[in-house]
Design a binder for these strands. Sequence first.
DNA 1: TTGCCCAAAATTGTATCCAATGAGGTCTCG
DNA 2: CGAGACCTCATTGGATACAATTTTGGGCAA
Lengths: 232, 232
Amino acid sequence: MSARGEKGKPRLRAADRVYEDIRRCILTGKLCPGERLTEELLAERFGASRTPVRSAIVRLAGDGFVEMTPRSGTIVKRRSAGEIADIYDVRALLESAAAGLAARSRTDADLDELKRLQDEMEADFEAADIGETENVETLSLLNKAFHQRILDSSGNATLAESASRLMDIGFLINTYTSFSREEIARSVDEHRKLIDAIRSRDVYWAEAVMRAHILGARNSLASVVEAEKCRR
Amino acid sequence: MSARGEKGKPRLRAADRVYEDIRRCILTGKLCPGERLTEELLAERFGASRTPVRSAIVRLAGDGFVEMTPRSGTIVKRRSAGEIADIYDVRALLESAAAGLAARSRTDADLDELKRLQDEMEADFEAADIGETENVETLSLLNKAFHQRILDSSGNATLAESASRLMDIGFLINTYTSFSREEIARSVDEHRKLIDAIRSRDVYWAEAVMRAHILGARNSLASVVEAEKCRR
DNA sequence: TTGCCCAAAATTGTATCCAATGAGGTCTCG
DNA sequence: CGAGACCTCATTGGATACAATTTTGGGCAA
């Protein structure tokens, strides 16, 4: 048996590196929606040939991060405010179900991990200066890890993957910079309620809290997007 | 503006052809779960070089049809009975929501198209000899088109795409050969109920019927899978 | 016989080369 | 001065050559 995604240093493929790099650039806003991705440029930028870059682009297109039009080129996918709202609606549907399942079948380890992530988030939030991109990024990552852990605790891998995919698309990290400290505080508080519900195995409460959490985020984001419109 | 998936004969790419071909082979059972896909073999089989084949494989991996392990190879993804049940659970969640939305906001054109598909299905079902793979395939395709149309009528493209992805994975066409004439009749009947609900704009009825329809299919399929176990 | 090790063959991953096509600029004509 | 056609060029798509790694088969020893 060989290494399969473990940390056993299986010498990462260039295609994987490039995939991660481009993805990161999109998530952090270094590549903006509508911006064109030329294979040769990316190849040069990331120190690889066009072959792994192409592979990465195909994967990113499958993930919904970019849009390939057959013989024309690839751009970072634009998303309207409506589309983003739709994504959050589906997330609410999937993640509230997952929260309910997690409340039903969680283990102690699940709960401990959620608490750990929550503590870390709170610590970072207290210390953080919102507006510093660094902090925003770690906060965003912790938030994603928290949600992901609940998904994984649901015991339905398909549910987890479907929701995770949407989470990735919606989580443009730089978006977070536009959230007020107040909104983030509310989010952190809702996470605490979520942990309560899951600890006490209250299925319907967990579902309700998660739904409210995500739909609340949707509305905050909607106003942010509306305010920013499309810059650059 | 250029052609993008329209019928304008934009000279399909080899990568797309190969993608469709492999996908079809998996769906129809010509490629079995666990079977290894070697690039050179596929290239020879479909009359292309390894480049478009690789591209197709990467896409298929993103879709969840195959599993690539980094320097080892690619196999058609195996799915346990539990995983298939999970997929159907998520489908029930997403598609019942979609059916509700469709009931709320359907147009007359949506309804006509659903009726048309339903008529075609019924005609095919009456005439068909279940067991003939040809008929099973067209029936399966019509079924998929029916569900897809409801998803599209929901007005939430993300919801439609998420559910569609799962539908594709679950719809191994050859699976249908194992369904009894009785079970298919039930399915057709449920479709009619669904049309009724959507026509009368009864949101909750549409949701309930869709949920029952999909969970019923899940249970039928579960017993089939259990019976077959893994052959070959 | 069983287990291990090494070598060769098969297969994946990457780079580069060539062909084809769409995009953009320019020139001409109205 | 503007619009349209044509031409050039940048970029994508595909093929092939090469490198690296994994698998597999055989041989050897316990």
